[in-house]
Write a protein that binds this DNA or RNA. Sequence first.
DNA 1: GATTGTGAATAGATTCACAGCT
DNA 2: AGCTGTGAATCTATTCACAATC
Lengths: 207, 207
Amino acid sequence: MTQPDDISPLALNRISVYLRCLRHLQAEGVSRIASQEMARRFHLSASQIRKDLAYFGEFGIRGVGYDVAHLRERLERLLGIQRLHPAIIVGAGNIGTALALFPGFHSGNFRIVAIFDNDPTKVGTELAGVTIRHSHELAPGIEETGAEIAILAVPAEVAQENYQALVEAGIKSVLNFAPVQLELAPEVRVKTVDLLIFMEELAYFLQ
Amino acid sequence: MTQPDDISPLALNRISVYLRCLRHLQAEGVSRIASQEMARRFHLSASQIRKDLAYFGEFGIRGVGYDVAHLRERLERLLGIQRLHPAIIVGAGNIGTALALFPGFHSGNFRIVAIFDNDPTKVGTELAGVTIRHSHELAPGIEETGAEIAILAVPAEVAQENYQALVEAGIKSVLNFAPVQLELAPEVRVKTVDLLIFMEELAYFLQ
DNA sequence: GATTGTGAATAGATTCACAGCT
DNA sequence: AGCTGTGAATCTATTCACAATC
């Protein structure tokens, strides 16, 4: 499938939100919806919904609205989540463990196919139905499983070296939970989730 | 302290990033730094650093750069993290537990002062040095501890009702981990961290 | 000479408003 | 009649380039 590569992450994230809304609507048995009604129900902007959707094609019917099931399918294809994405977790500490057990990763379009840690007492134990392997085995583990996405959940001090190892092992994208400014490789897309920055944002508005 | 209330969240998050960089520099013994050098070291934009900082005041010395220790202190005051912020966790499941044990919440300017869950088998047990209380006790718990920030780590299905309870109990801001569009109360600031949306963003660029 | 702080210029995102379909 | 798709208008953010300052 061809797609624009220069869409803004903001618009892309909104597409994910729309998709979630459509799933809700579908579960409720709604089969058609207008942008305005969707905006009202989920606290979004109607013109932005139309603009975002139109960016990828003409999905609606003028005078009528959008077909919920059809639009949902189109958006899933668009995001590339019509198929299952194998993912790995690097670091089986608190955050890694929590993510391994996160229900969203068991019901959706992502599957945790391997977990790595460098603590020998953890290696060999089971977590979320997967046996933890040693971080040395990152490269063969990624190759065997065809993993595309790595969730990096290691301490900040070792995040850069683990990221490097993932890049060399041929991973395609990384979701990073370590609170560091990673030195990025151009061929690997990284999304950093920095809890302290979120907390500091909230702290600012407390004043 | 007075401050502009209309700063963009993007700029605010960058201030957090600068602060982290300054801490690194200070730990390395660097006492002065120019925007250009800081940009080079941490992969940022020099003109953006200057613009962001200048928005809050004149922190630098022309021809010289910025005093690391001084700027750090100013930014901490600016973000309101010169003092400790008491925070609570609602939901002691996988994510709630991981966050309770997250090192960032033990070394920084945030302190987890209470944890709530509605599972009677969890109530009364210890987690990260705090005894888990029943969710019924949210309001008195918030009052006693003076908690300002709540970390909402409950299943998606019950996120809205727990949010409502937090609003009624007088919390000031919420960091929400449930993958839902919360119906927001105007007086409570909310930041949602949605892992599935991040994963979907990465999936898009795999294609 | 070097570097900040800042107005002007550019780029990007959102909202408006309406022509074009059904 | 009603709602989408979209160009134009507005608003926001980033980058540039240089005068002001040390």
